[in-house]
Design a protein around this nucleic acid. Sequence first.
DNA 1: AAACCGGGGCA
DNA 2: TGCCCAGGTTT
Length: 364
Amino acid sequence: MSKPETKQCFAQRLLDWFDQHGRHDLPWQHNKTPYRVWVSEIMLQQTQVKTVIDYYQRFMQRFPDVSALADADQETVLAYWAGLGYYARGRNLHKAAQTVVKEWGGEFPQTLTEMMALPGIGRSTASAILAISHQQRLPILDGNVKRVLARYDGLPTWPGERATEKALWLRADALMQTDRPGDYTQAIMDLGATVCTRQRPVCEQCPFKSDCVAFQTDQTATLPKRKPKKTKPVRHAIVWLWHQADSDWIWLERRPEQGIWGGLWSLPETRFDLPEGEIEPHKTRQNLIKIKVESLPVATGDLIEWTTFQHTFSHYHLMMTPVSLPLSHAPQGEGQWVKVTQALSRGLPAPIQKVITQWEVNHV
DNA sequence: AAACCGGGGCA
DNA sequence: TGCCCAGGTTT
């Protein structure tokens, strides 16, 4: 008789996987002093393991401990960093080494807050160092971990979002139930780097394939959710529909070659952006309409402001407000009077065509 | 061209 | 505190 299966906890399954399949022979995985772990973590923030190995070994040979690093001049340090990119991090590394020597007598601090006060060390890096070198149970949340957890939980929101990130930190903490925090930390990064990869994850080899939401629901390709496209700025335009009284002749202008709808015939438009801090376009728009109409030989009585509608370009939303008004004289500017039917056959921009059609329907 | 990456910096 | 960006690399 088989005993009912007791599901092992996340941490234990991760560690079992790590013990059997993880990498254990990387240069920073022996003699795990805060200094050595720190240098590896900083290098690994930006570069793949296989590239880091060589750099790390050369770096350690030249700067075997934190005081050797602190004593060197920045130029020398950066020479050993050359090729890794992100030189600000190389400079921070050097600065932090000097701080550790000066402020801490050459011993790294052992609390999260003190560690995070060092330049170039944020929460995730600080936690990694303390977990790996001092067995403190502090969760990390780097790109690997975010990916693993987002898939495991089937997280439907983008990890860069405030609330999501907060939830991920809590989750990372809750799942880290182990008496081997150092190995756990390396294990989860290793899993993310070798199995739960960004594309083409090797789910067959994953210890969580039986209960990973992403795998079970075939969402590994779409999780973690990508950063939403940057929200497009909203801009505004008044579209002038000048027409001859009691007829269907309207005023068209040719757009400049450069810019949106370059060279096309269109209705004259007035672009405007809202003043700093203003959200409501109404006032600004009214003002612009007033100024415009006052410059024309007409009474405002026949002016019609149509409903504002949105047209979206690749890089911004344009809120367009058509304003129609009968005119007896041509407005100033390069343009011509055209019969509506003619206008519509000139290949106007789609939203402009829409405006004219709508006006025609309501006007005639 | 666009996504990604942890930390820093700023309101 | 919360949000966004600099400075790069990778896809």
